[in-house]
């Protein structure tokens, strides 16, 4: 077990280093630099931009900049964001909780819905209900995510102005609301983006859950359980479900990082100030420290989640023994 864990950790570390270095090199090779983007006002001269480049060492070779970045990162200094003109750490401290709130709710909701729908489908595979649900799921699974977000925005914020069209809170009045009013305001802003995320992801989860259940249903112990007189639902709940949950755990491990980058499109359409938006904008602004730190944070998350999912599967599945 310890050896397995050590090997997995080492592998994860390797992936993180590789991915981060790749992002660092790519973004430095791209045309333009953070100064060109941050000091883009037309009446600032190129000569002044050059002074800033020198001041920040951006005129040094990429290798040297990389070494300096590694040294700083090792000391826990993620650097200073050019586009936000704040420490990278502060930018993340603002954006990450926003993403976690949106994604956390989206994840929980979509897995809850997805698993239930998957189980309902698997109860009578091939029945009318299963096929009908399957088609709906396939349609939802085929919707372009940004388009669904745009359509939901169009319908529920513009045509029927039931919900605010974006943002996390009322931009002006939030701080002056009563505690109850604040909660309500937040909830109202959450509805549309969470709904979009839940619809998009639940479709995938349900399809996966159905497949996973069908794969374990024909097994001997399921047949035994049914023979013992357990109802189908009880048998599923006692035996099959536990086994079918394993691939779903793996899926969860995959989904967490995908959500943590932020559902980029959902954040964009609903103006949600989360990680996805921050990192995408940072790329356009060539904000080297922010991009590199963002990719690093992301790949750590991915590696950690994959590892946790593996361990969770191992813990849940008695057949796997970790050597």
């Amino acid at each position: 077990m310890r050896r397995y864990l050590a090997a997995r950790l080492l592998q994860a570390l390797g992936v993180v280093i590789f991915v981060t270095t790749f992002a660092f090199v790519m973004i430095h090779l791209a045309p333009g630099d953070p100064i060109a983007a941050a000091l883009a006002r037309p009446n600032i001269t190129d000569a002044m931009r050059q002074e800033w480049r020198t001041a920040y060492g951006l005129d040094r070779p990429v290798g040297e900049q990389y070494v300096r970045w590694v040294a700083n990162t090792a000391r826990g200094n993620l650097g200073f964001s050019f586009s936000h003109r704040r420490p990278v750490r502060d930018v993340f401290a603002d954006a990450l909780p926003n993403t976690l709130l949106l994604s956390g709710l989206g994840l929980v909701l979509s897995f809850a819905i997805g698993i239930v729908v998957g189980v309902v489908q698997a109860e009578r595979p091939g029945s009318g209900r299963d096929r009908w649900l399957g088609r709906v799921l396939l349609v939802l699974y085929s919707v372009p995510d940004f388009w669904l977000a745009l359509v939901i925005l169009m319908v529920f914020a513009y045509r029927l102005p039931l919900f605010p069209p974006g943002g996390m809170t009322d931009a002006v009045m939030y701080e002056y609301l009563s505690p109850g009013g604040k909660l309500l305001d937040r909830a109202r802003h959450l509805v549309l983006p969470v709904m979009t995320l839940a619809i998009l992801t639940a479709a995938g989860v349900a399809r996966f859950q159905r497949g996973a259940l069908l794969a374990v249903l024909p097994s001997d112990w399921m047949r035994t359980a049914l023979a013992k007189g357990l109802s189908w639902r009880a048998a599923v709940a006692r035996h099959a479900f536990r086994n079918a949950l394993l691939p779903v755990i793996t899926l969860f491990g995959l989904a967490v990082p995908a959500f943590a980058t932020g559902a980029i499109f959902v954040e964009k359409v609903f103006s949600w100030p989360g990680m996805g938006l921050v990192v995408v904008n940072a790329i356009a602004a060539r904000d080297y420290p922010l991009v590199t730190a963002g990719v690093m944070l992301l790949s750590v998350l991915v590696a950690a989640c994959a590892l946790l999912a593996d361990l969770a599967v191992a813990a849940a599945d008695p057949r796997i023994r970790l050597g």
């Binding site: 791209a30 045309p31 333009g32 630099d33 060109a36 983007a37 883009a40 356009a284 060539r286």
Partner: peptide, 12 residues
């Protein structure tokens, strides 16, 4: 059409 950083570097 390019992002602002690329645009500025083309200008410079």
């Amino acid at each position: 059409v390019s992002d602002i950083a690329t645009f500025m570097s083309k200008l410079a």
